[in-house]
Design a protein around this nucleic acid. Structure first.
Lengths: 155, 155
DNA sequence: TTCAGTGCAAAAACTTTGCAGGAGG
DNA sequence: CCTCCTGCAAAGTTTTTGCACTGAA
């Protein structure tokens, strides 16, 4: 999906919900798509501030929620702390393995799983719209694990 | 697993980590196991208070964390709000489908999935310890969905 | 022109922490 | 007896809200 198409998706959603088309919303959309990995509202706010793009924290929170509602972003809670977001655009469905010792996140794809989920939803008279899957594990290699310890880094 | 065995699991864990065996910890263990479904720290605290079991909020938070570390409970974040817990004891691994409109939660089991997860962890030199899987969907039947609307009930 | 969106600060919601007293090992 | 645990309140974090102003439709 091209950036223009994403913008179009967002505009279509906003119009559909009778939300207004504002410059702030596009600034936040652009900034989100430029984030490398998972990010939270405050990180995005600070990144934008650092780039001299001034929008308020409240607007960032609200806009991320809108983008998650129209499936441009997925919401995650990897460790029960802050809500983190991730762009779905240009990515296959994937899942997260989180080391409970060092917080390292490994992503994996398993296309079959998406089919299973959709089937189960259908069987229950539901229409699947998204997912957030976390598998918790421990690094077996202590060296790899220690390297990431104390970073408190979930990106 | 019998209640006594769960208690034994908890004691073994506490001893192993050089944590103390206290009455409060057992009171919270018992109360957790008596919660019907998913619950958060404050709900458990209030339930216990209502049953004239007086432990502090701080102790509830800390003990739930301990119980989750030793895999008696699983931690979830269904909607990015509060941390919710769920007893693993006496239950098969299962997954949650959450209706984004009415917050209803449907649980499903899919034994194959557990095997896939373990394999992927192993392939990445990780040892799987737990998982929290949320599939977001929409109720297709508006009547069913509306019944649950505005309850703000994640149990 | 109208009313939703924005920015700011204040409040709310959830969780952790500091400290004094009490209890486990 | 030495710590760790507990309870309480206070503080910390993350997110939401109220209000006056601005700008999209």
């Amino acid at each position: 999906m091209l950036p223009e198409d994403i913008k179009e998706t967002f505009i279509t959603y906003l119009k559909d919900k009778a939300h207004r088309i504002t410059n702030e919303r596009f600034l936040i959309l652009d900034a989100s798509l430029n984030m490398d990995e998972h990010f939270d509202a405050d990180e995005l706010y600070l990144k934008m501030k650092n780039d001299y793009i001034n929008v308020s924290r409240a607007t960032v929170y609200k806009t991320l929620e809108l983008m998650s509602e129209c499936h441009i972003l997925t919401k995650h809670n990897f460790k029960g702390d802050r809500t983190r977001y991730e762009t779905k655009i240009g990515r296959n469905p994937h899942y997260h393995i989180i080391c409970v010792k060092c917080n390292k996140i490994i992503e994996y794809e398993y296309p079959e799983l998406e089919k299973i989920q959709k089937k189960i939803c259908k069987d229950n008279n539901l229409e699947m719209v998204d997912h957030s899957i976390q598998v918790f594990a421990k690094c077996k290699d202590p060296k790899n694990c220690k390297n990431n310890l104390n970073q408190n880094n979930l990106n």
